[in-house]
Design a protein around this nucleic acid. Structure first.
Length: 714
DNA sequence: AGCACGCCGACT
DNA sequence: GTCGGCGTGCTC
């Protein structure tokens, strides 16, 4: 009998590799172990998924496992199950997920150095060598250096093959050097704690009561909590408080790092022992947080999706704050759907999953309502129709802006302008024939840089000098402006020259933005213009007038959730309004009757929900069907298209009843090098989904030249 | 991912 | 001949 193990690597290779276990490693390797394994010409870190005995050799050459790394967390079977399921669902390699469980970075215990041999010295002195090889030997002649350093210094992409040939010639030697380790680096992380369960929760009726009963049962159960933010957090805090009296961990998941701040005052006020955890902590902070969590000194963890991979047990409650947030479906490296990840973890742990939002996704609401897991923390406040004013294009006029805002500003109140388009970009066009200069290579309309007098391609970065006349009809070209945030800023400035304005949108200068937000909070800045970025960063209930500019733009996006997303944005913008009788919302739009706009502004969730649900029912979109969203990303379009054709053929053959929507090429984001082909699959049943998932997993393993990502929409 | 390998054009 | 650039395919 020979012992084998399957190993997954933290690489973009969704495949487990089989290795033989040498006798001396047999007792030290178990599922979850971190190991060193030879892969191609390198030796790299990987994670053992399973260990097995077999008497028959597989049909390929099996290499021996090279070693075990004994430090690091020990993973339970439950936890590995969670990782395996998530990996299968998302088609992302288990190794990438497992790397996230490691906690603070550890300094490697050894390092490789390149030595110059006597023979190498001779060759160097003879002076026959040229180019990079000579440079390399010269560098190494002073002192031994690491391959990584040499690669950087020489700018050599093929350093490893060069080292190999130099080593073979006997001119250099590769040696392993041991590093001195500090005491704490040698310690293995403690085992996940298995706590004694269960304990009694207060018996009561009402919203908290049903959550307590679910916690008591320690079985997976899913709730949707809706209602106003303040009331929702009050309820969450009550539940958290009870669990902390008991045992086990609580994860509160927020969509982005920024949003951990919202929980800070609440935690302080209640004197809760909480740890904030996310990927951008400094090394020291990360170690401290890790230590707090692992040792169970703190069992309440608030943070981004990184917290789902904390190897602690048992987890009793996972809260997904702002469940409607799009960032939850955009996790990358590894790619996965965060809500799905949270649910899989909760299922494995027998924990309660609590989705929370004032305007949940239509699917979430539908599933919660039909499953009886909806908790409404209080009557939502719908604005009266009188508080919402519609303007057409005239709303852009400086005089109009002045007229509408001045009463509020003179009163010392604040005004927010919401525009969902970042825009600095100007462009050239021909007023006679409509010609627009495009990049010859990329076929994208060129952006006008007025200061430099140049036209620039956003895609490839190439620029040409600004032409005067239209090459088609000879007319003088005119400059147009995208009516985005920058344009709006200038307009408002013109209308309100006596007030200080702030533009709140994504920017490089994080510090400036921070002080800007503080000035808004203190009331120093009265007029704020913001994009979607601002919605999650400004305080709800702060503004007396909210002006929403052309929200209909996002309605035409080719996505069945376009209306829902528009509605959510409207709703969130509307939540910034204080609840004074004189306060109002102005919407500059050409489509005032659109439900997403009308209901969003008034925060009338149910009205929008009913209508949208009907639309989804008619078109058989989620929640009335399952959709698998697939993306194939390759280094170039041809490659991605080739694999997508192969995929289509195989799908049609194996699943004749499967509905395939697409494929189409995703319009590339600026600067993105990878090209993506997207398609949707609609399996009729859940059994169909299981078979489909299996097939997709196999397919992604045999077609590793492209990046396959799958996302389940339901 | 990273690495090898092969093909190609440029340049001692 | 040798070097570097780029595309392709594989790793137990």
């Amino acid at each position: 009998m020979t012992a084998y193990c399957r190993v997954s690597f933290p690489l973009a290779v969704n495949q487990a590799f089989l290795y033989r276990l040498p006798d001396e490693l047999k007792n030290r390797v178990r599922p979850g172990s971190r190991v060193i394994a030879p892969l191609g010409s390198r030796k790299i870190k990987g994670y053992v998924l399973e260990v097995s005995d077999s008497s028959s050799e597989p049909g390929f050459q099996v290499k021996d496992l090279a070693g075990v790394i004994e430090t690091g967390p020990v993973l339970s079977a439950k936890f590995l199950n969670f990782i395996r399921k998530l990996s299968a669902r998302s088609l992302s390699p288990a190794g990438l997920f497992l790397e996230l469980t490691e906690g603070p970075a550890r300094v490697p215990e050894t390092r490789l150095v390149v030595w110059l041999t006597d023979k190498g010295k001779e060759v160097l002195e003879e002076g026959k060598l040229r180019g990079k090889s000579r440079q390399l030997l010269e560098l190494v002649s002073q002192k031994a250096l690491s391959p990584a350093f040499l690669k950087k210094k020489l700018g050599d992409r093929r350093l490893s093959s060069r080292l190999k040939s130099l080593e073979q010639a006997g001119w250099i030697e590769l040696k392993v050097k041991k590093r001195k380790l500090r005491e704490n680096q040698l310690q293995a992380a403690p085992l996940p704690r298995q706590l004694s369960l269960p304990v009694v929760f207060p018996p009561e009726e009402g919203p908290a009561g049903s959550i307590f009963r679910a916690l008591q049962a320690t079985n997976f159960q899913r709730f949707l909590l809706t209602g106003e933010a303040q009331k929702r957090s009050e309820l969450i805090v009550r539940v958290v408080d009870e669990v902390l009296k008991d045992e086990g961990y609580i994860f509160i998941l927020v969509p982005e790092i920024e949003q951990t701040r919202r929980w800070l005052p609440l935690v302080k006020q209640l004197g809760l022992e909480a740890v904030f955890y996310h990927s951008r902590l400094t090394e020291k902070k990360r170690s401290e947080a890790w230590e707090q969590i692992i040792s169970a000194k703190s069992r309440l963890v608030i943070g981004t999706r990184a917290i789902l991979f904390l190897p602690v047990e048992p987890v009793r409650l996972i809260v997904i704050d702002e469940e409607q947030n799009k960032l939850y479906d955009q996790a990358e490296n590894p790619a996965f759907e965060v809500r799905e990840g949270a649910e899989l973890r909760a299922r494995e742990e027998g924990a309660v999953l609590l989705l929370s939002s004032s305007c949940p996704r239509v699917s979430s609401y539908y599933h919660a309502q039909s499953g009886g897991e909806l908790i409404d923390s209080g009557e939502p406040e719908v604005l009266s129709a009188q508080q919402v004013v519609y303007l057409n294009q005239a709303g852009w006029l400086p005089e109009k802006i002045k007229e509408e805002t001045e009463p509020y500003l003179k009163n010392g109140q604040q005004v927010f302008f919401f525009i969902n388009r970042k825009g600095y970009a100007g462009y050239l066009f021909c007023p006679a024939c409509g010609y627009v200069p495009r990049c010859e290579a990329c076929q994208i309309a060129l952006r006008l840089d007025k200061k430099k007098g140049e036209l620039v391609c956003r895609y490839c970065g190439q620029s040409i000098s600004q032409p005067e006349v239209c090459p088609v009809c000879g007319q003088k070209l005119r400059a147009g402006r995208v009516r985005g945030s920058q344009f709006l800023l200038e307009r408002v400035k013109k209308a309100l020259p006596d007030f200080e304005l702030a533009l709140v949108e994504e920017s490089e200068d994080k510090k400036r933005m921070e002080s800007c937000l503080k000035k808004i909070e203190s009331g120093k800045i009265q007029v704020v213009i913001g994009t979607e970025y601002a919605l999650s960063r400004l305080c709800p209930g702060r503004f007396s007038l909210v002006v929403i500019v052309e929200p209909e733009m996002s309605l035409n996006l080719p996505d069945f959730r376009a209306a829902e997303e528009t509605f959510i944005r409207m709703f969130k913008a509307s939540e910034l309004l204080d609840n004074q009788p004189a306060s109002k919302i102005i919407i500059i739009t050409s489509r005032p009757g659109e439900p997403a706009i009308k209901d969003g502004a008034r925060r009338d969730y149910l009205s929008f929900y009913r209508r949208e649900l009907e639309y989804r029912r008619l078109l058989k979109y989620p929640p009335f069907s399952l959709l698998v969203s697939l993306s194939l990303a390759g280094s170039n379009l041809r490659q991605a298209a080739r694999v997508s054709r192969r995929l289509m053929e195989e799908l049609e053959q194996r699943f004749p009843a499967l509905e395939i929507i697409g494929p189409k090429v995703k319009p590339g984001q600026w600067r993105k090098v990878r090209k993506e082909v997207r398609l949707y699959l609609r399996p009729g049943t859940t059994e169909g989904l299981t078979l489909l998932s299996q097939f997709l997993e196999e397919f992604s393993q045999t077609n590793s030249s492209v990046h396959l990502q799958s996302r389940l929409l339901f």
